[in-house]
Amino acid sequence: MATTDKAAVTAGTAAPDGAHAQGVFPPFDSTTFAPQLIWLALIFGALYLLMSRVALPRVERILENRRARIAGDLDEASAMQHRAQAASLAYDKTLADAKGKAQTLAQQMRDQLAADSDAKRKALEADLNARLVAAEASISQTKAQAMTHVGEIAAQAASDIVRHITGKPADEQAIARAMAATKTV
């Protein structure tokens, strides 16, 4: 190439190669058409065969494999996600169940304890009431008893007072009459 360049420089405008028509613009030099067409046909034919038989089907397969792979991976991922969601739901449900169970258990315990203490309180109250009643009864009995002795004591006191003043034993019947009179008043 370099040597022909030099030839072109020295030769000026003249075409350097004697084989070509003088002064013809090289791309329009029809003597070169036949070899160019023959080699273009050979090489473009080879290119077409290589592309259509080997290269393009191969690239298509590669792209198809990749698409399938990506789609498969995405499917797998979404299946995994569903499984994870289901697991999470199951966990939530278990948790809620356990919570509910714990609550009912606590409620039962509370109810039982309340019932127990209620029963104890009631028993205690009943006991106390019974004692109160007994005590009241005993008081009223004592009181009644005491009241029966009041007359006697009064009569004794009256006879003692009379004997002390008069110096002689008191008339028991008079005292009884006086007492009956005061009682009726």
């Binding site: 072109a8 000026g12 030099d29 070899p35």
Partner: peptide
């Protein structure tokens, strides 16, 4: 004209 810009298109056997 010393450097021929057309020379690059010449088809040589």
């Amino acid at each position: 004209k010393a450097i021929d810009p057309i020379h690059q298109f010449i088809v040589e056997p």
